[in-house]
Amino acid sequence: MSMIEETTGRAEAADDEVERFPGDPDMWLFVVVESLVFTSYFCIYLYSRTQHERAFLEAQSALTMSLGIVDTIVLLTSSWTIACCVQHTNARRYETARWFALATVGLGAVFFVLKVAEWAHLIRDGHTFTSSDFMQHFFFLTSIHAIHLIIGFVVLGVLVRQLSGPHLRAHRTIETCSTYWHTVDLFWVVIFALLYIVR
């Protein structure tokens, strides 16, 4: 698709009329495949949990649920800001879209800082990767999620760059980047429920 076709985008339309593919289908394939890989990690955790209930409950009590709630709300809000960014991009309000994109980066950074602080706190209290099976799962799932988050910063960097120059602004690329960012939220939503709430 030529740059001209990509950048003109679609005109604003009534909400329920237009059927369009959000972003690159290839990125959606990534979303599906990575979700299945994560689901296998989750199932292994859940199975281990059910076989060693007492030990898992005991180790789980070291977690602070309210921190998990804050983490979740931060990432949900980041999904909202990036969705707003895409909406404004499609309406060709690029400056507003850019602010929403930067807000997303900020929220991602807040999540990351909270996560690192939580890890530091747990490690100081003697809970590490090898201190218990639950903690092995906890640190593994939160670490692999954090790696996705860090990659997300790179992806958001591409997105912000697209919005920053008038000669760029490929709508498809911007939507594809936002699709990737949403996976950071999608995976966290399940990770939070499994690690902090499931008993």
Binding site: W80, A83, S178, H182, V189, V190, A193, L194
Partner: peptide
């Protein structure tokens, strides 16, 4: 907990990821 998480997944996909119009 798991069911609520799945409900959130669907809402995020449908509304934020614009699958509703896909």
């Amino acid at each position: 907990a798991i069911t609520l998480a799945l409900a959130k997944l669907r809402i995020i996909m449908r509304e934020f990821m614009d699958v509703r119009h896909a």
